[in-house]
């Protein structure tokens, strides 16, 4: 058999899952959609001694809206996120990004929580979450805490999650009406890992200048990056020139790695191109504020 031996546990509640995680100790691993973990197990790059399957845990896969937030359970599948009416209405950027993740078979199983907790720096959801000011609800033995996307992604495959915590919910503030958005990704082929991806939102003042901007880049370093300098350049301004300058700033702020798929320099150039196109798209679909 491909994976090494492990003990399989399938809790039905978050509380049970947390206590199994605590009991399991260092070698216990959570199984969400399995689209990243199971390949690693099949290759024996990961050999957890205890596997805690979250697929039977109740109450952590729904997508709901409150007055000021969209709340997505961590076990919501990519496909459910992409097709959710609530997500498409309030967070079209997130729905768009979900459609870029892998293939239909991957999207049928993969989960938003799994993708975020795995924290691959080229993943779509971490980038989209950063752009959309998401907060993550982490549940541990002492209860829950909320961590902003900005503080969550630490480094390559490393997050603020403690070993005894489970990501249970992703909360997005509802964006102001008329917010412009864009998401673009470059990959070697449809569904492949991104070489680079850029997410951006733009809010416009009545005079057409930018009042708020948020830009996040995947593939620009060891974690998804917020492009604060580029955002600042946009505020109070408009026009192709400032978009081009902001795109250059985003590329300069990135430090993409080189690997067999692409050099870091190529990735940096592509981040500039994608940022320019995404900002142009966001400007185009934004409505001017009152």
């Amino acid at each position: 058999m491909k994976p090494a031996r492990f003990e399989y546990l399938a809790p039905t509640s978050v509380e049970e899952a947390v206590s199994l995680l605590v009991e399991g100790g260092e070698d216990a691993k959570l199984l969400a959609g399995g689209q990243s973990l199971v390949p690693l197990m099949n290759l024996r790059l990961a050999q957890p001694s205890v596997l805690i399957d979250l697929n039977k845990v109740e109450g952590i896969s729904s997508i709901t809206e409150s007055e000021d937030a969209v709340v997505i359970g961590s076990m919501a599948r990519h496909r459910a996120v992409a097709e959710s009416e609530v997500v498409r209405r309030f967070l079209p950027l997130l729905a768009e990004s979900a459609g870029h993740i892998g293939y239909p078979a991957i999207r049928a199983r993969g989960t938003i929580g799994g993708s975020i907790a795995h924290a691959d720096p080229v993943s779509e959801f971490p980038c989209a979450c950063l752009c959309l000011h998401a907060e993550f609800v982490l549940t541990g033995p002492a209860g829950t805490r909320q961590v902003r996307a900005e503080d969550f992604f630490v480094s390559y495959l490393t997050t603020a999650l403690s070993p005894d915590e489970i990501l249970t919910e992703v909360r997005f503030p509802k964006p102001s009406p008329g917010l412009g958005w864009g998401f673009l990704e470059l990959a070697r082929k449809t569904g492949d890992f991104a070489l680079a991806a850029v997410a951006a939102t733009v809010a416009l003042s009545p005079d057409g200048t930018c009042s708020e901007a948020s830009i996040a880049v995947a593939g620009g370093g060891d974690r998804p990056l917020r492009m604060v300098e580029a955002e600042t350049m946009l505020k109070g301004n408009q026009g192709d020139d400032v978009i081009a300058r902001a795109a250059t700033a985003a590329a300069t702020s990135s430090n993409p790695p080189s690997d067999i798929h692409s050099s870091g320099d190529f990735r940096r150039q592509m981040i500039e191109v994608l940022t320019r196109r995404v900002l142009t798209a966001a400007w185009g679909n934004a409505r001017r504020g009152e």
Partner: peptide, 22 residues
């Protein structure tokens, strides 16, 4: 057998999934 090729795709409750990743 690590989710890259799609040969093992089956329908699980009607949806395509990779049977090597479950």
């Amino acid at each position: 057998e690590h989710g890259a090729c799609g040969a093992c795709t089956v329908l699980l409750d009607g949806e395509p999934v990779r049977s090597c990743l479950m």
